[in-house]
Amino acid sequence: MPIDAAEAVAAEPRSSEITWGHKDVQLYHLGVGAGLPATDADELRYTLESRLHVLPSFATVAGAGTALAGGLTAPGIEVDLAAVLHGGQTVVLHRPIPVEGTAVSASRVQAVYDKGKAAVIVLRSEVSDAEGPLWTSDSQIFVRGEGGFGGERGPSARLELPDRAPDRTEERPIRPDQALLYRLSGDWNPLHADPEFAKLAGFDRPILHGLCSYGMTLKAVVDTVLGGDVARVDSYTTRFAGVVFPGETLRLRMWESPGRVQVVVSAVERDDAPVLADTVVTHH
């Protein structure tokens, strides 16, 4: 069996050291659309090393995203990477991410769910530095053709939208070269750069990384609802609901409640085709 759920969940965590510096943070911020306009004081918090603070979604690329890649080679996991889709992502912050850091990432398979025609692997990474826990990251990996092994189906609830108009609607343009810039933070999948490879995958042109849309969305929430204060973010979760292409525009509809922002993200140019769903930022 390509996936042995019991073996995968029982395996010991894999630990690795990760490091990052201000250039890694600045490159990530540029990759999720920061720096426009280039001299704007609010944008300089993402791009100028003397004013830099770290968007919490940077956790998904710290150490070039090695935790995610390592999880797919864990004991009990043997899958065809061509059948793998990133289904969802959650980051829980234990304290603000420093601009420069060295930390230990302990990664393990938290759960394996049987969805019938597919399996969902939940990869958890717990990251700590010398001062203690920094963040916990859960990646939900959808593997086509690997279900039917008799395991638990796992959670499948969808968030209901509030019964009112959004409190805020924002639009964020995606630069035509944004996928080329974002991939320099560690996701080298040619699906996001090579037109021929994209066609083999069923797309007429390269698509944007889901985690790029994830970062763009958090930046929009921080900049508008949270007054630009990244340290107020406690957690951030989403489900990847559809693709978006470089050059398109993200429409973000936000519903605010105490300590919580619920967001739905769609592609403006394709009649609001879904991009991110079940998206929640919790904050203090």
Rank of each mutant, 00 (worst) to 15 (best):
E131P: 04
L93K: 12
P166M: 00
P98K: 08
A103S: 04
L93Y: 13
I174L: 15
V91S: 07
P162V: 08
G145A: 03
V91P: 02
P206E: 03
W188C: 14
G186A: 05
K115D: 00
E100N: 14
E146C: 12
G101Q: 07
L208D: 06
L218S: 01
G116E: 02
V143I: 08
Y113V: 04
V109Q: 04
D167V: 10
V99K: 14
R95T: 01
G147P: 04
I141P: 09
F203C: 05
G186F: 01
D138P: 03
R153N: 13
S107P: 11
G101I: 03
I207F: 02
L161D: 13
R153T: 14
P96I: 03
I141F: 09
D204S: 07
V92I: 10
W135S: 10
T217Q: 05
S139N: 14
L159T: 07
L93E: 05
R205D: 06
T136Q: 06
R164E: 07
R172T: 14
Q178H: 10
E196Y: 07
L184T: 09
G215M: 03
G116T: 09
W188P: 11
L208V: 09
E131H: 13
V104G: 10
R205Y: 08
P162I: 06
R164I: 04
S107F: 10
V99R: 15
R144M: 11
P195A: 02
L134P: 11
S128A: 15
H94M: 11
I207E: 00
D129C: 01
